[in-house]
Simulated assay, not measured.
Amino acid sequence: MPSLKEIRAANALINDATAPRVSVWVGGTSGVGKLTIKALVETGVSVRIYIVGRKSSEERTKTFTQELNAINPKAEFVWIEGEVSLLAETKRVCEVIRSKESSIDLLFLSTGYAPLGTREETSEGLEICQSLEYYTRILFIIHLLPLLQKAESPRVVSVLGGGLERSSVNTDDIDLKKPGSFSSTTGQIQYCHLNSIGLDWLANEHPDVTFMHTWPGWVNTGNVRRGNVDPNSWMGWIIWLVLEPLIKTFSMRDEDSAQRNLFQCTSAAFGGHGVPWEGKPGLSTLKKPEGGLFLVNYKGDCTPNAKNMATLREKAQSKIWAHTQSILEPYL
């Protein structure tokens, strides 16, 4: 496990040659994405950063980027409005980016929130957290892969629960639509597994791109308040009396989280040709330092989770990927 001191030392080596010169942040208007953008810009490098978010986030994001420009005038920010819980909107946003850029170095995906309320579907018929945490993330990757593959050291980072995979996943009701299938617990576990299974498939199909599924640990992002939970309901009271105090107590500092995530976005410890790393390299799901999906936790530990991932790959991956393709096909 790299220490925070080692991580900070590695991040101090980020320069114009090793930084992601063009990056796309889906979920960069708040939480881990926003913190990591700030850490990247504060290195002083020359970067172009696309931030995708809803209309309601535009003004505060504009204020945020103006503050960062005062720190680093070499940073360029491009705002793209989009309701990315919708697959049609995701496709449109990708078309805008593809019209502006010929290559992308980093795609950082951190949309979503804990599904603590009742099941809520988008106008496209998908449970909203599943759409944000899986389907639209995969769609972003597929649409932007041609640009990623033209970069020198492309990287895709999906932030959710990398390394927490169990040996089984619900393949009979992948979208948790049957009565009794969906709950806050089953939803979050299912979406975590779908991320790893889908990203593992893509990583093996595209070994020229570094794929990462990361688990940020406890970070006080306000995530538990983003769902459709009535604050006067029993779940609302649990969030206020139990979850929020627990998160505040055990969360790591925002700055520490930002540094750890920046390390994951830029370090050659996880494949590719990023910032040089002399420590022990991370191993992917293929148990190699190159190729395959990297599962990384909040400490920077990388685990292949070999036994569980092999079981999921053998017993569930083909069915889940076929189902994913059937959902995404109209938007490809």
Rank of each mutant, 00 (worst) to 15 (best):
S181M: 09
A19P: 05
K91T: 08
L241Q: 14
S102Y: 10
L68K: 07
N195R: 09
N69F: 05
I14S: 02
A70I: 08
S233K: 09
A75W: 01
R54M: 12
L139N: 05
C129P: 02
N195C: 12
N69T: 02
S167T: 13
P207D: 10
W79S: 03
K55L: 03
D172N: 15
S131D: 03
W201M: 03
K287C: 12
I138W: 00
M235V: 14
V47A: 15
I142W: 09
Y50R: 02
V224F: 07
F140S: 05
S181A: 14
T18Q: 04
N195D: 08
G112M: 03
L106S: 09
G271P: 00
R60T: 12
E120I: 07
N223Y: 06
A114K: 05
E59K: 13
G279S: 04
E59Q: 15
W240R: 15
F108C: 05
T36F: 11
K177S: 14
G82A: 14
T185W: 15
S23K: 02
A114M: 15
I97H: 07
R155M: 03
V157K: 09
S251F: 00
S56V: 12
E329N: 09
T210L: 06
Y134T: 00
Y331P: 00
N232T: 13
L145S: 03
C129S: 06
E81H: 06
N305F: 08
I189K: 02
